[in-house]
């Protein structure tokens, strides 16, 4: 009986609900929780911190890195907040539960780790000013007080990393000024990103320490019911082209049709939301991953920007076998635009 099996059992109830009500319970009823409102003005640094009145929230960092010898690495650092009830309370009475995932992906290896913790007792949390997000020994900590300069650490049994992140562009608000609609019926979340990080640091791998550098992308999102009831999962792309332009696009898969949305981010950092349906993605090739059939090569199109390219997983077996399992890994873009990025696919059962 180890902690991991205990956890997965404990969370089994949650996961079962997740199946019935969209991935990780995100499609369930928002009873008592705050609902994102159109027209809300995001304000920083407060909104970098936690929003305990909302059901779910995340601080989601992915990066495409290279070693001096040219080996490609993808890294992930995610802190999830999930509230059993709205609001915050002191100590053990806090209804907030924190969960974190970290991963290092190479073309032939995918290492990951998970942490889970109580809110309220100091074991995990996020403070806005100065910015710090932490769980156990993992942290994403501001070295300048704001989100521009960050230090990022995580460690699992087989890996650890220590990275410095430096933003070279402005924050990007998705949707209507950060209000991102997720379905026809109006489900929405607050969603902004910092996609302009230059990253340097070291990875500790079973073979030894590797110096790496590259670029990273931080997503911030919180909501209480970001999926409609019939939506079962999503395919989410964050792509950085060699031109300096960036594309965020997602497909929310639903019984009554898919819902797609996204943001075009110019090299200068100007963000343009994409109209529903303008971003298109079609699976080209499926891989057998942990007994599931998962698309690991895609054709993406964004006609208004003349984008038509193939997105290929660096490692088709980038499976996060955590309490909530999903596919998350670095990708390569070839076609009208070339570049790298990250792909996340959930709800493939």
């Amino acid at each position: 009986m180890n902690a991991k099996s205990a956890l997965s059992l404990l969370l089994a109830g949650w996961a079962a609900t997740a199946q019935a009500q969209g991935f990780a319970g995100l499609g369930s009823d928002a009873e008592g929780f705050a609902i994102p409102q159109r027209g809300y003005q995001l304000s920083f640094p407060q909104d970098h911190g936690a929003h305990p009145d909302f059901r779910i929230e995340w601080w989601y960092l992915t990066a495409n890195l290279k070693s001096a010898s040219g080996t490609r690495f993808g890294i992930q650092w995610t802190l999830f907040r999930s509230a059993l009830a709205p609001g915050e309370a002191d100590g053990w009475q806090s209804p907030q539960i924190w969960m974190a995932h970290a991963a290092v992906t190479e073309s032939d290896r995918h290492l990951f780790a998970e942490r889970i913790a109580r809110g309220g007792i100091g074991q995990a949390g996020v403070s806005a000013n100065p910015f710090e997000a932490w769980i156990d020994g993992w942290q994403m900590r501001s070295t300048d007080g704001a989100l521009e300069e960050l230090q990022l650490t995580a460690s699992g049994k087989a890996f650890s990393y220590d990275l410095k992140l430096s933003a070279e562009g402005p924050l990007v608000k998705h949707g209507e000024n950060g209000y991102s609609v997720k379905s026809e019926s109006g489900q929405a979340s607050y969603y902004y990103s910092q996609p302009h990080y230059q990253v340097t640091g070291t990875l500790d791998l079973p073979e030894g320490t590797v110096d790496v550098s590259g670029h990273g992308w931080l997503d911030r999102e919180w909501s209480s019911q970001p999926l409609a009831e019939d939506q079962s999962g999503w395919d989410w792309f964050s792509l950085s082209f060699d031109s300096g332009d960036k594309l965020m696009g997602f497909i929310l898969r639903g019984d009554s049709g898919n819902y797609t949305s996204g943001t075009w981010i110019s090299a200068g950092g100007t963000a343009k939301p994409l109209a529903e349906g303008s971003f298109q993605a079609e699976p080209l090739e499926f891989s057998n991953v942990e007994g599931r059939r998962i698309p690991t090569r895609w054709q993406i199109k964004l006609p208004q920007r003349n984008v038509s390219a193939e997105v290929q997983a660096l490692n088709p077996q980038s499976w996060m076998g955590t309490s909530f399992s999903y596919w998350e890994g670095p990708v390569t873009v070839n076609g009208s635009h070339n570049g790298t990025g990250y792909l996340e696919m959930t709800g493939y059962e």
């Binding site: 009986m1 099996s5 205990a6 956890l7 059992l9 404990l10 109830g13 609900t17 209804p95």
Partner: peptide, 24 residues
Amino acid sequence: LNHPMVANLANAAEQDGVQPLDAL
């Protein structure tokens, strides 16, 4: 969320039809 005996308790709760997380 982390005690070793939780696996046993979660099993029991499941049989009881109780959402394990409700105990939190």
